[in-house]
Structures are given as C-alpha cells and as structure tokens.
C-alpha cells in the first residue's frame, strides 16, 4: 500500500520466525515507569534530551505493569517495598524481563543493613545487572543493549519453558 506505491515492489523478505519475533520484541520494548531512588533520576536522564533513549524504541514508559515488557528496578529495594515489587512483577504479562539498575538493587550496595533487600534477585529473577551508584545513563543504555542481545539470541524452545 503506502510503501509499495512510493517505492515500487520491494519483494519478499524471508527470515526465521525467531528472528522476526525477537526483532519485534526488542524494537519496541516498553519499560515499566518504576523508579525507587537515586537511580530513577539517572533513568529519567537517560530518557531525557541528552541521552535520548527513544533512539532504541525505549522512551515510552508505561505506568501499568500490564502493558510493559521490562521492569527496570532503579534503586534500593526495602523490605517494605519488596512485596509490592513482587506483585508488580507478577502483574506483568509474559514475556517479561528485569534489569537490576545500580548497586543497591543488584547486591545491596553500600547499605548492608536491616532495611534493604540484599539484591533484588532474592525477589524476582534478574536478566541484566547494571553496576554503578548510580550508573551513568550510558551504562543503563549499555545494559538495555545487552538485554536486547540476550533477547535476540532466544530460541523457540525457550519460549515454551
């Protein structure tokens, strides 16, 4: 229709189902609008003017977990917040991925004490860890790119499990 009338017949592109689906999954991945602490500010920086996360189709944050594919745990998770986080994760529709952003979310960071969960992987399974306190926006973007690589390497057999 639109494209063919302008560019003529583009022909047919053949590819595997895996590649096509994984391309779709990485190209428009919607993160959950979920900020906890300091790292959330760097996450906002990454989406704002200078770093412009929309270059990777990642700028559209969804406020509802039902509509999002990725949860970026940006900041320290406290014992009081942990059940809420788990519930948010459970509410997300499959397929879903988790990035643990920052030291606090990855391992407790400088706060080795009674209030902080020592690593968010105690509550939800994490795909990519991003180090830093807080990580620079470039680091977060790198983490997201790493996740994209990981998704592109997924095979049909993994989807079922």
């Amino acid at each position: 229709m639109g494209v063919t009338s302008k560019l003529g017949n583009l022909g047919i592109v053949t590819t595997t189902l895996e590649t096509a689906v994984n391309w779709g999954r990485t190209g428009a991945m919607w993160p959950l609008l979920f900020g906890l602490a300091c790292c959330a500010i760097e996450m906002m920086s990454a989406q704002a003017s200078d770093y412009d996360l929309s270059r990777f189709g990642m700028e559209l944050n969804r406020a509802s977990p039902r509509q999002s594919d990725l949860i970026i745990v940006a900041g320290r998770v406290t014992r009081k917040m942990a059940p809420v986080l788990r519930q948010l994760y459970d509410q997300m529709a499959d397929p879903k991925w988790v990035i643990s952003m920052g030291d606090c979310a990855s391992c407790g960071g400088v706060y080795n004490n009674y209030a902080i969960v020592q690593g968010v992987d105690e509550i939800i399974p994490v795909d990519v860890y991003v180090a830093g306190c807080p990580p620079r926006p470039e680091q977060l973007i790198h983490g997201i790119m790493t996740l994209h690589e990981k998704i592109k390497a997924e095979r049909i057999v993994h989807w079922a499990s």
Binding site: N113, Y114, A115
Partner: peptide, 15 residues
Amino acid sequence: HPHRRDYPMGKETVQ
C-alpha cells in the same frame, strides 16, 4: 525498634 543501640545492624556477610 531498629534505631536502638542494642538492635543489630542486620548485616549480611560480604561475598
């Protein structure tokens, strides 16, 4: 009550 001096810090062993 966590801020009492006799309440443990709740540290986990560093890996």
